[in-house]
Design a protein around this nucleic acid. Sequence first.
DNA 1: CAAAAGTAGTTCAACGTTGAACTATATGGT
DNA 2: ACCATATAGTTCAACGTTGAACTACTTTTG
Lengths: 166, 166
Amino acid sequence: MTEQTPRWLNPDERRVWLRLSALMELLPAALDAQLQRDADLTKTGYLTLAMLSEEPTRSLRMSELGARSNASPSRISHVVSRLERGGWVRREKSPDDGRGQLAVLTDAGWDKVVASAPGHVERVRQLVLDPLEADDLARLDAVVVKLLDVLDPDARFAATALARQV
Amino acid sequence: MTEQTPRWLNPDERRVWLRLSALMELLPAALDAQLQRDADLTKTGYLTLAMLSEEPTRSLRMSELGARSNASPSRISHVVSRLERGGWVRREKSPDDGRGQLAVLTDAGWDKVVASAPGHVERVRQLVLDPLEADDLARLDAVVVKLLDVLDPDARFAATALARQV
DNA sequence: CAAAAGTAGTTCAACGTTGAACTATATGGT
DNA sequence: ACCATATAGTTCAACGTTGAACTACTTTTG
C-alpha cells in the first residue's frame, strides 16, 4: 500500500530542499550573467554552439541538438534562430529526412565558441569545480545521475543517456 | 602563482558538468510545470506564499521576502504584484521604515498555500527526496552548502545564511 | 497503395525575468 | 542642520521561454 496522505517535509529534508532550490536559482543565474556580459550569449545558446563545435561535421539535427542542449523543440528552434541572426549558425535541409533540419556551425560561430569558452569554463571552475574536492565531485555526480534517471526516464536528453552508459 | 591560462575540462569534469547542467534545466522545469498546471503558480510565486505562511505575522519585508525566495528586488516586486492581482497577497507600508513595504498574506493566500503545498511537496519527494538514500541526501546537502558559499559569499539569500548556521 | 498515425520542426501569443533607470526615504559625517 | 551617500522598492523596455496549434513529411497498417 502506498502512502496516500501527503508526507510533509521534516526539518532535514526541508533544509536540503531549500538549499537546493537556492542553488538551482543562483547557479544558472550566475552563469547566464557571465555569458551575457562577456559573450552576449545565453547558457543554452552557448551550449548549443559548444555541442555543434564538438561534432566532426560541425552540424546536428535540430532534435539531437535540443537533446544535447537540454532544450525542448520549441526552445531549440528559437535558440537556433537567434544564433542564426548573429551569424554563428545556419540551417540546412536534412538530406536523409525531408522533415529534418540541420543546424550548421559557421566559421564565425566556431570563432565565437573558441573566444567565449575559456571565460565560461573559468567561471564554471570558480563556481563549481574548484570549491569541491574530488570526493565531493564523485558524490555529486552519483546523486545527479539518480535524479536525472527519474526526471528523464526515457533518456530524451543526452546527459541522461550519458549517465546510463558510463 | 595562480594558473593563468584557462584550464580545460577533463573528461570526468566535463561529464559531471554536463549532467549538472541538465539537472539545473530539467528539475526546475519539472517543478514549474507541476505548479503551473495544478496551482497556476511559478516556483518563486509558490515559495513566496510559503515563506509568508511560515511567519507568525504572515508578512515580510520585500527585501527579506526576496532573500528567502531567491529573488532579486526587481523580481520579487513583480512576483508580489502578480500575487496581489490574484488576491493572495497585499502590500502594506512598513511602519518602521518609510521606504519599506510589507507583503502580507491574505486569507485567500493562506488557503492557496494550504491547497497547493501537498501536491508540490509530493512532486519534490518523487523527483528528489525519494530517489535518494539518506546518505545521498546528506552528501548532496554538504556539496550544496559549499557551492552556495561561493555563489553567495555575503549570504544575501536566506538559504546561504541557513547553510552557515546549521 | 491509400489512409491513419507518428515524427520533425516552426510559429504564435502570453508570460516571467532581466538590468538599468528612477523615486523616495534614511543614515552618516562635518 | 545639511549634504552626500546608501538603502528600499518600483517601473520600463527588451528579451527568452512556454505550451498549443500548425505544416510538412514519413512510417505503419490494413
